[in-house]
Nucleic acid binder design. Structure first.
Lengths: 150, 150
DNA sequence: CAGTTTTAAGACAATTTTATCGGTTATGTT
DNA sequence: AACATAACCGATAAAATTGTCTTAAAACTG
């Protein structure tokens, strides 16, 4: 599995926020119900994202979470790094410590290519852009739903 | 993490066998010591690979495991599928069931590209070819070793 | 101020993955 | 036949991941 459940949920939630657009706070409860994700688990995920500075949160009535700063500058790559850590983009595919150009594993170069392909996929598009895709319709963020942009 | 520990170990062990070349049986104990992998764990991995038909095994003195059939036809893709299952090559990157062209997640197309890149990396080269690379030197399969082809 | 809504945070439980251990069975050697 | 080697197999344990619950703390409402 490429991504942990934590990252899967986190990405879906962040894309959902991007799809909504706007700067209002959205309650985690609401998001968890819309996307069919465990509320308490999602809460923790947002706490991590808040510590990483990717969202801000607000307590009390009409509180919730929202994308922090400019959605144009947030990438999925940053979300994955905040939740799963940077291993996917840095570690040897065979788990060998100190796998470098000098002392490579047999897959070193090949994996470097695949990895940058993945890094591109997650890093080239901003959350804002994907949000626009979502609003244009035709995409979904949960099982069985046609669209979950809002 | 792209691959499970099981697959990481399995690939390293299979590449090791390919690097040795030849048709003799090599004991799992010996392999586990050479590659610094838990013996009992590696035993189980080879059992899975045997059930998948990628290796054959032989009990008793001078027994062990060896690549089954022609090393030219075995790919790392087959090893990963035997150990981790086909999910990496089939499932939605966000874990959404039924994510298809018709009803895609926002990453569907992008992931399809990255995925086939990975599938290529693991599927285009045979174990035999990587084995030759190993014998030519300069690669390693364990932490801290210069070369573990034999 | 009391009560409600909502995130924050930590403890706890379940599940999956990773790893270890011990005994059994097959095979070869003496 | 007795012994050594080595894969096979099931049970167990440790660790990481995933998920749940409970209590706090903050913010609003009346």
């Amino acid at each position: 599995m490429l991504l942990s459940k934590t990252s899967e949920y986190g990405i879906r939630a962040m894309l959902h926020l991007a799809g909504i657009g706007g700067r209002e706070y959205v309650s985690v409860k609401r998001i968890s119900e819309t996307l069919d994700i465990s509320f308490h688990f999602l809460t923790k995920i947002f706490q991590q994202l808040a510590r990483a500075g990717l969202i801000s949160s607000y307590r009390g009535p009409n509180g919730g979470v929202r994308l922090e700063g400019d959605a144009k500058t947030i990438t999925l790559r940053a979300v994955v790094i905040a939740l799963d850590g940077p291993d996917l983009f840095t570690k040897c595919v065979l788990g060998l410590p100190g796998c470098t150009e000098d002392r490579p594993c047999p897959l070193h170069d090949h994996w470097a290519t695949s990895r940058s392909e993945i890094e591109n996929m997650l890093g080239e598009k901003s959350l804002d852009e994907v949000g626009q895709d979502l609003r244009s319709g035709g995409y979904r963020l949960k099982a069985g739903a046609e669209w979950t942009g809002s």
